[in-house]
Design a protein around this nucleic acid. Structure first.
Lengths: 258, 258
DNA sequence: GTGACTTAGG
DNA sequence: CCTAAGTCAC
């Protein structure tokens, strides 16, 4: 089973690119972030025609997340991240597919640091830690997947010294990521490729992709129960080179059958 | 010699369509309106690559006119319509090509009627009448060509009764058009096709093109000296059906050699 | 640099 | 409906 995450940066403007990638990559489960579309403007017809069921949580202009699945039932569990009823941003959706809990999310960017937005990011991650710990405690097969807006380590950014005070790399958020790992979550891509330079995002500005000035932001974390099923994975970097591409590339793993 | 007019409704957004049409239609002289680009953003490189020389008068956001010519010298004569030095709108450009005076323009829309904008339109047309009369008086071969924003007659609109109080069809502007004809200008398309229903514009709204709910706004008027050289003409209506087309279609004539 | 939104003009 | 342009967020 192939499971992927892709920050599309606008589901409607990105539709041709998304459909082309779905056709070529044939993922079974896809988590999307940054739909940038209100609930009623999600292109469900085109997604269905491509062979996928979907659940999604839209929002006008910003954020928005979705889970797509091919030939599989999607059981929606949550449409927001528990822990703050006043949070109106559409950044989290959770479902059970094939008996695995899929937590698809888009962590707040958090810039500028310091400031309110950074505080919101830290608070959001705390809620995510809390929610995710429940799956660990219950010993459920679960996946944390999406745009974490966290660069986990120095080897995940082309020029770490430039990023010290960026909310994507601040020590507080790296610490939160390490905390997840300490609790048992497995960074699947880093597990498969312990030494390689792997990026998932290249800024639109300054020819970042051509210079490979990238960062690793999009992650797929497996709960301990799933570790033994991890078969392969990768970043579809070439998609970032397509016309009218997102600034992120799709990231995917394959799990062996239970 | 093939001479055409095309209101492109945004030269940069329309560039692929324009280049495709130039390639297919192979006009010798092309008058463009509604460039909607400042002087420095006219895509002269692409136009040159397509084989055309050009002169143009740009304006930020609105209006803007250009004259293109293939393998012919363009002698620029005017960059604005004489008669009002305070008029800052880029609606008129005049050149001599192959010993013919080419007056390329974009008459003000004039809506809503009544109002200041309608008054500006009438005043603008008066200046055009004055300028054009000079060519008649001097017995020069000349062409008035562009988007007149005038529906000359009831047969030039799909539903005339709906348009009585629209600035494109108000009796004042139709009278001004008749006045040009009375002075000797020849409506080349109507001369070639006295009885046919011919439109050059279909609104983007309400599926106007699919319903053929069109109007005739773009005209090519010949000074008396050129009447005998009129060989053929037409509206490239199919261009309006292309993806990302303008709301106008190109209009063209062919002149016999002198 | 890019997307979504808003506004103005048609 | 469609364009250009200005705004905001990333």
């Amino acid at each position: 089973m192939k499971i992927a995450t892709y920050n599309v940066n606008g589901i409607n403007g990105r539709l041709p690119v998304l459909l082309r990638w779905l056709e070529e990559a044939q993922p079974d489960i896809v988590c999307l972030q940054e739909l940038k579309a209100p609930q009623e403007r999600f292109p469900i017809t085109a997604i269905n025609q491509a062979g996928y069921q979907a659940i999604w949580k839209g929002q006008k202009s910003w954020n928005g997340v979705a889970i797509l699945a091919k030939d599989r039932e999607i059981i929606e569990v949550q449409r927001s991240l528990p822990g703050d009823d006043d949070d109106v941003q559409s950044r989290y959706i959770e479902a059970i597919i094939d008996q695995i809990v899929i937590c698809c999310f888009y962590v707040p960017n958090g810039n500028p640091y310091p400031g309110e937005k950074f505080d919101y990011k830290l608070a959001w991650i705390k809620r995510l830690q809390k929610r995710s710990q429940q799956f660990i405690d219950m010993e459920l097969p679960a996946i944390l997947i999406g745009d974490f807006n966290i660069i986990p380590n120095a080897e995940d950014v082309y020029k770490p010294e430039r990023w010290e005070n960026d909310a994507l790399y601040r020590k507080e958020v790296r610490k939160a990521y390490r905390e997840l790992i300490r609790k048992g979550w497995i960074d699947s891509i880093r597990n498969l490729f312990p030494e390689e330079k792997i990026y998932t995002f290249w800024d639109y500005l300054y020819k970042a992709y051509e210079r490979n000035a990238g960062i690793r932001l999009d992650h797929i974390l497996l709960s301990p129960l799933l570790k033994s099923r991890l078969k392969s994975g990768g970043v579809d970097k070439y998609v970032r080179g397509w016309e009218k591409s997102s600034d992120h590339a799709p990231v995917w793993i394959e799990l062996n059958k239970k």
